[in-house]
Design a protein around this nucleic acid. Structure first.
Lengths: 169, 169
DNA sequence: CTATTTTACTTTCTTTAAGAAAGTTACATG
DNA sequence: CATGTAACTTTCTTAAAGAAAGTAAAATAG
């Protein structure tokens, strides 16, 4: 991708995408959740070009998603670990895995099972839930401006209204 | 991004990223959830180069995430709409919005509120949940091979074991 | 019924980033 | 003290992004 910064776009999704919306970034995070920490480990696990890996790790550190920690008893080594902000991307990783198994999976069942450590039981699929816990589809919700408003939402509403046919379908 | 196909990588996240892991793709989906449907609407809403938009829409249609529908009473117009596979990406969009508000937001509160259509009440944040509905962090879970196994998971486990220090922290 | 607009792209050209391979630096190990 | 290792950086080529202009078919205006 070439110079398309969403950093100033007045929309949460755009801003999140600015920090997370790159193929390598997402698989780097996945590897981090698998316990991968070091430059050469990411390199081996992902088969990524060193230049690109260095670039992405630096961006993730800049964004506060990973932090860099010197390894006690080896003056050369550093480890890249997930910050709280990084750990908080876990639902996205789990969701992508769920979605892929549902829509791109083979018939032999899931490749990976994510289980609760304490009980060894599978977790729930990641869903959008109502206040009362019921699963919601996109049709069951709508978006409105919150306290700080979104010009992006306003503009989409104007565009859609111009054409009419305001449902998603 | 240049020629890095994850299509053959034996990992759900990688395969999902192959179809969804591009900045423009994600904001196109967001706009679709806002009701945007036509080429020029996406173009206006996103400020994306026409070439790139045409490319991404074609890929989304190929992937079965959008479908193309001729408009009844205008022989020129087509509309791009979300398939079920596309509608199923909704948790990702909501998650990205949540995550951005938490980690990149201003102090004035959220830009957008997503509410249940039926009740007008806000939805829950997107989380990873245990079977019993409790919110789980990455630390509370682990991943193991499922019925069809993942070489990617095996390799990461081997890499991590070689170094030891098997926790995420 | 001809001229202008509109819709949905496509083409061309330049700039930027990805990818492969080799090189570098500081520290560690035999 | 020579070799190895960890974490990059440099160099070079190729592919994709972005800007701008162009095109074809259908619709609308006068």
């Amino acid at each position: 991708m070439t110079r398309s910064s969403f950093a100033d776009v007045d929309c949460g999704v755009a801003q999140a995408v600015e920090q997370l919306g790159d193929k390598w970034t997402v698989v780097i995070l996945r590897s981090a959740f698998h316990g991968i920490r070091r430059f050469d480990e990411f390199s081996e696990h992902l088969g990524i070009a060193a230049k690109v890996l260095a670039d992405r790790l630096a961006k993730l550190v800049d964004a506060g998603i990973l932090y860099k920690q010197k390894v006690e008893d080896d003056g050369r080594a550093v480890e890249y670990k997930l910050t709280q902000k990084g750990l908080d991307t876990y639902p996205m990783i789990i969701f992508l895995n769920d979605w892929a198994e549902r829509w791109l999976g083979n018939s032999k069942g899931p490749r990976i099972e994510v289980v609760e450590r304490k009980t060894g039981r599978p977790i729930r699929p990641v869903h959008v839930l109502a206040e009362n816990g019921k699963v919601l589809s996109a049709y069951d919700t709508f978006m409105r401006n919150g306290p700080s408003g979104s010009e992006v939402l306003n503009r989409s509403q104007r565009i859609v209204a111009r054409r009419r046919g305001n449902d998603l379908r």
